[in-house]
């Protein structure tokens, strides 16, 4: 049993070479108008077999709340990946999150899928609030969410 911070160790050392082949992509998420404090979000990729691959973005900085982002935390907790360079503020009701993310070229059109988990204090925990296959055709496509997310688009 190790601390999450200890688990998410030095992933930059592994991902840095990959950045050479990475595409700069834009992630845009529009939240619904819900009642409650800002939401925590985790945007991550799963492999073609459905298992966790890597994290693209985390909104919300307090690690004690990460357990509510269940699909993502379950995936990342077995890895040594670090997320401190891809973590930002939580996103409030009705707000828009727009950030730059890095997506490796090799993963596009290779059976990978983007997932977003969302959670709000004293509210719901949504595994797979949004699910979107990582294909070139889906670049810029606006998809609707099931929970706190109204819509999402990833452009690369």
């Amino acid at each position: 049993m190790k601390k999450l911070t200890a688990i998410l160790l030095l992933a930059t050392a592994f991902s840095a070479p990959g950045l050479a082949y990475a595409k700069d992509a834009t992630l845009a998420i529009q939240m619904t108008n819900y009642q409650g404090p800002p939401a925590y979000l985790a945007v991550y990729l799963t492999k073609p077999d459905g298992t966790y691959d890597s994290t693209l973005w985390v909104a919300g900085g307090r690690s004690e709340y990460y357990r509510h982002l269940r699909g993502w935390v379950r995936g990342i907790s077995g890895t040594n990946q670090r997320i401190d360079t891809i973590t930002g503020a939580s996103v409030g009701s009705g707000r828009t999150l727009k950030v730059g993310i890095a997506v490796a070229d090799a993963l596009i059109d290779a059976g990978y899928t983007i997932h977003v988990d969302s959670a709000v204090e004293h509210g719901a925990e949504n595994r797979d609030d949004v699910v979107l296959p990582l294909t070139q055709a889906n670049s810029g496509t606006v998809v609707a969410g099931n929970g706190y997310i109204s819509s999402m688009a990833v452009t690369f």
């Binding site: 049993m1 190790k2 601390k3 999450l4 911070t5 688990i7 900085g61 307090r62 690690s63 004690e64 709340y65 990460y66 357990r67 935390v73 379950r74 907790s77 077995g78």
Partner: peptide, 16 residues
């Protein structure tokens, strides 16, 4: 402000 270290409970790894 995160100046007290981990007070919210550490996350135990998902069982394998």
């Amino acid at each position: 402000f995160g100046l007290l270290g981990d007070t919210g409970g550490t996350l135990s790894a998902f069982p394998t």
